[in-house]
Write a protein that binds this DNA or RNA. Sequence first.
RNA 1: GCGAGAGUGGCGGAACUGGCAGACGCGCGAGACUUAGGAUCUCGUGGGAAACCGUGGGGGUUCAAGUCCCCCCUCUCGCACCA
Length: 697
Amino acid sequence: MVIQKELEQWFFKITDYAEELLQGLTTLTGWPERVLVMQRNWIGKSLGVEVDFPLAEPKPDLPAIRIFTTRQDTIFGATFMSVAPESPLVERLIEGRSQAAAVREFVVRVSRQDKAVRTDADREKEGIFTGAYAVNPFTKARIPIWVANFVLYEYGTGAIMAVPAHDQRDFDFAKQYGIPIKLVIQNPAGSLAEDHLDDAYEEQETAGRLVNSNRFSGLSVPEAKTKIAAFVEEQRLGRRTVNYRLRDWGLSRQRYWGTPIPMIYCRACGVVPVPERDLPVELPKDVPFTGKGSSPLAQVEGFVQAACPKCHGPARRETDTMDTFVDSSWYFLRYCSPQADRQPVDPAASDYWMAVDQYIGGIEHAVLHLLYARFFTKVIRDLGLTKADEPFLNLLTQGMVTKETYRCATHGWLLPGDLLGSEGEGWRCATCQGVAQKGRVEKMSKSKKNVVDPERLIDTFGADTARLFSLFAAPPEKDLEWSDSGVEGASRFLNRVWRLLGDLAGTLSAERGTLNQREAEPVAPQVLEIRRLTHRTIKKVTDDIERDFQFNTAIAALMEFVNGLYKFAAERHADRPGNPAPGEAAAFGEAAEALVLLLAPFAPHVAEELWEVLGRAPSVAQQPWPPYDPALVASERLTIPIQVNGKLRSKVEVPADSTEEHVLAMAKQDAKISEWLQGKPTRKVIYVEKKLVNFVV
RNA sequence: GCGAGAGUGGCGGAACUGGCAGACGCGCGAGACUUAGGAUCUCGUGGGAAACCGUGGGGGUUCAAGUCCCCCCUCUCGCACCA
C-alpha cells in the first residue's frame, strides 16, 4: 500500500533560471529539434495577467482572491471562480459557513486520490461550492467560488477565474453544476449562441470578435489581450505576469546512495549549513537496510548526532541524500580539473576544456539530465568558476536497441533460448511445446525478455562483430533492431577481410615502396583503378564519420571496398598469374593498409591483428588517420545517363574532362538515343556537367 | 487535443545541394567446390510477358521530384486539466 505523506524537503531554485534556460535553447544549434521542443514545453513559459477578484464579503486580511490567466480577453465571461483543494484559501472561504463540513470532506477525499489518477486528463471534473462569492471586477457581477479538483495549487496562484464559454474545462464544470455560461467572443460567422453551445469556443487565431464586453466589444482576441492587460494595470486591478510550468527541483531522497545534504538541525539555531571546513559529509559505511520507514541514514545514530556549528550544542544531521541527478549535473565540469582540491572546478582548466563539443546520450535524458546540467553550468558560471553558458555544444541522442518479442500463452514472455522452431514453421515454447506468438519489436528489456546474451555473443562472434553490427544496422540516432542474421553478416564480413589480407600479405612485402616511384614509369590501368578505389573509400569513410557519425554508410563503403579488392585480386590471378603489373602489388599494399586503418575504429581487435599480419609495427591505434589524394578520388571516365523527355534511355561513357559538345555528340551517336530522337524535332537539351543529359523532343 | 519526427523492395537501411531510386547488409534463387553443408565462392534478385509502372494517398511546380509547394492518411515519440 502506498500512502502519501507530506515531507519537508530541500529544493534547488531552478525557477530563478527559467528564463535563461529558455532563452539559451536558441543558442543550441547543435541539438536535435525535438530535445529543444521538449525542454521548451517543460519550462512552459506563459504570458498573462494576475487579477484580484474582490470578495463579496471581504475580510480585513483577505480582501480579494488573486488569479492568473492568459485569457484576460475573456474576463467578461468569468461566471465563477475555482480554487485548488490544497489551497489555504479554502479554509478561509468556508469558515463559519454551513458548507464547511461538506467542503472539508471533499478536500480530504480529493487529496487522498492517487496522484496518477488525479492528473489523468480524462479525470472527471468535480467540485463543491464554498458558499462564498466574489465580484467580477469587470462586470461587477456576484460570482460563486468553487473548489475544483482540476485546479492546480502549484501553478499560478492556485485559483482561477472560470470562463465556461471559452475554456473547455470550465465549460464541462459549468454544465455539470448548472453554472451560467456567458459568451464574450463571437466567431467570424456569428453562429455561436450562448444557450446552445456544445463546446467551449477556444479559438484564438481566427477572426473572432469580443462581444458583451463593454468598451472592449468588437476587438479581436490579440487586441483585447493587450488592451485589457493595460487596463488591468491602469486600474490597479492586477499586473502583467509571466508564469513557468517549471517547478523547483526537489532533491531530497530517502535513500542511502546519494550525496548527503550538508545541513544540521539545531534546536537553538535552526537549520545550519555544515561549514566548509567540515565538508564533505561522507556516507557512513555501516548502515542497516530495513526497507521501511524513513531514510536509511536516520538509523545510524553515529551519523545523525552532530554538534551545531554555531552554538556547539547537540544537533541532528539531515538524513536525506541528494537526487543522483545532482552528481551527473556537473561531472563534466569536474572532469576538467579532477585534482582541484580547493574548489569544485578550476576556472582556468574549465576555460580550456569547456564546453563539451560532442555529447551523446539517450533521448530519455532530453529533459531532466540535460536541463539540470544546463542549470548547474549556469550556477557554476555565476559563481565565477567557469565561463561556459552552456555545457554541451552538440548533442547526439542515440537510439535504443530493439528486438522482436515472443510470448507463450501459459509461460508469458520467452527468452530467445526458450524458443523452438523457426520463422517459416512457426515458433513454440520450449517448456510446454505450445504456440509462441511473435510480438512487436520493442526496446530490449528484462521484463519482455527480448534480450541477447552478450557473453554468448562475444564467445561466438567476438566483440568486434557485435560492435560492427551495432554500428552498421542503423544510423546512430535511430533505434537499432537487433537481428541475429545481421550479426552473422557482420562476422562474415570480418572473415572476408581476414582472408583477403591473408592472401595478399605474402605478395605485398616484396614490392613495398614502388608506389613512390609511380611518376617515373607508366602506370598500368588496373593499378590506377585499385588506387582510385582506395582513395575514394578513404574519402567516403572520412566524410561519413565527420558528417553526423554516419557509421552505417562508412561501413557499407568498407564492404564495397573489400568486394572491389576481391574482384581485382581475382582478375589478377586470372589474367596474369604470377606476373603482376608494375606497381600492382604496391597498390594492393596501399589498399590493404588503408583498409585496416579505416576498419580500426569499427573493429579494433581484428584491425590490430591485421596490422601485424601486414608486418607493420604495433599498434594500429597509434597510426594517423589515412589521408586521401584528391587527384585519385576523381574518376577518369564518367558514365553519363542520357534521358529523353526525362526518362532514362541510355548511358554513355566519356572522359571526365569532356566538353559539353563532346558529351552531346556521344549521346546523339548512341544507337538507342538516335532511335528515340528520330523524326522528332529536339526542342531543348538539358546538360548538367558530369551528371546527365536530357533531350526534350 | 497540442508539439516533434517518420512513412522507400520480403526485411534493416542508402540516395549530401532537385539530376541513373533501391548503395551496403539480411533473406531468397541458381550454380561451383564438396562425403556433406546451416562453411566458402560466383552470379542473380522492386513489380510486370512487354509497353511500362514504381519512394503512404491525391493534386501541383519543373526538362527532371523520394527530395520543393498544397491537401489528406497512417505510425512512432514527447507533453497533456499548466488557466
